[in-house]
Simulated assay, not measured.
Amino acid sequence: MYTGIVQTVASVASVTEHKGFRSFVIDIDPDHLEDLKIGGSVAIEGVCLSATVIEGSKVSFDAMTMTLERTNLSRLAPGMAVNVERSAKMSDENGGHPIAGHISCTAEIVALKTEEDGAFLRFRVPAEWSKYIFDRGFIAINGASLTVAEAEGQEFTVYLIPETLRQTTFRDYQPGDHVNIEVDHQTKVTVDVMERTLERLMPQYLGGR
């Protein structure tokens, strides 16, 4: 479990292709590696991955083909930057919202401004996921906990404070790029339960006409 508060931005040191998976070596600030062990969970661009090798500040992670297809990790190349968050402890303060690191979908950036004054990002999500995104609702984008400012149809907008710009990789993105989206779990459960309830009730209403 994660909080959606990105702890550091790290650099991709290398990428190695294997049959059925891809390995990433991420060079992470040692200050954020305390007590990390093999098998420990780390969110990379919002994707929950397990550490497979730790050599100094360089940590290796493997991503299966399914993960690469569902996320934007396939775009990563040496020298690129990624958002990093270690898994949360029960005693940690949660300044964001609970995040599992299980990506719902990717969203295309349709517009953005990354200057500090009035910075924003606007996205387009697949239609089947737009029903879980509401004005003032929580959403995780590349692992960062953010609040939806406006949502209409398949598009939604978030605004960014200077600290978010400083502490994340959003400055590196351009229109047309894709980001990882994790919809709020509680919102998803609520919407799904309401839909299923209405589906069960609808035949009764229709039969009574």
Rank of each mutant, 00 (worst) to 15 (best):
E199L: 07
P162T: 10
K19Q: 03
L112G: 10
T3D: 05
W129L: 04
V191E: 01
T169W: 11
V6Y: 05
T168R: 04
C48E: 09
Q174D: 11
K89Q: 08
S91F: 05
L165C: 13
V191M: 05
P78M: 08
V148T: 15
T65A: 15
A88L: 08
N83I: 07
L201W: 12
P98Q: 06
P98F: 07
E34T: 09
R196F: 09
T65N: 15
I5W: 04
E45C: 14
E93M: 12
S11E: 15
I181S: 04
N94Y: 03
T164H: 01
L198F: 06
D62Y: 07
R209H: 14
K131Y: 12
L198M: 07
A81V: 10
G96P: 01
I28S: 03
I161S: 10
F170I: 01
R171P: 13
E155T: 13
R124K: 14
A10Y: 09
E155G: 15
A119C: 00
E85A: 00
G4I: 01
E69A: 14
R75W: 15
M194V: 14
L198R: 03
R166E: 15
F123P: 04
I133C: 01
E34G: 04
D29L: 02
R124E: 13
K131E: 13
Q174I: 12
T8W: 09
I54M: 08
E182H: 08
A144D: 02
T67S: 06
R200P: 06
N72A: 13
S23H: 03
A10R: 08
F61C: 03
M1Y: 11
R70F: 05
K188C: 07
E128K: 15
T114P: 12
T52N: 12
I133D: 02
L49S: 11
Y173Q: 14
A43W: 01
D184I: 02
C48F: 02
P98N: 08
V12T: 02
I141C: 08
L73N: 10
A151G: 11
T157H: 08
G143S: 07
P175L: 14
G96Q: 05
E116K: 03
E69W: 14
I103W: 04
F61S: 05
I133F: 01
E115D: 10
T147M: 05
T157F: 10
T114I: 05
Q7P: 03
T168N: 09
G176S: 07
Y159K: 13
N180S: 06
T147N: 05
Q154E: 14
K113A: 03
H185K: 11
G4K: 02
M202R: 15
N142L: 13
D92F: 00
L121E: 12
G20R: 13
V191F: 04
T67W: 00
H32S: 03
D184Y: 00
V53Y: 15
I38W: 11
T157D: 09
V183Q: 02
E116N: 07
G207Y: 00
T71S: 13
V15C: 13
E195K: 12
L73A: 04
L76A: 11
P78A: 02
K19N: 06
S104E: 10
Y2R: 04
N72T: 09
D27T: 08
K19Y: 03
D135P: 14
I139P: 02
G39P: 00
G118F: 01
V82S: 13
V47Q: 11
V82R: 06
G118I: 00
R200L: 10
A144C: 09
I5Y: 04
S60E: 15
A100V: 14
T197E: 14
A43S: 01
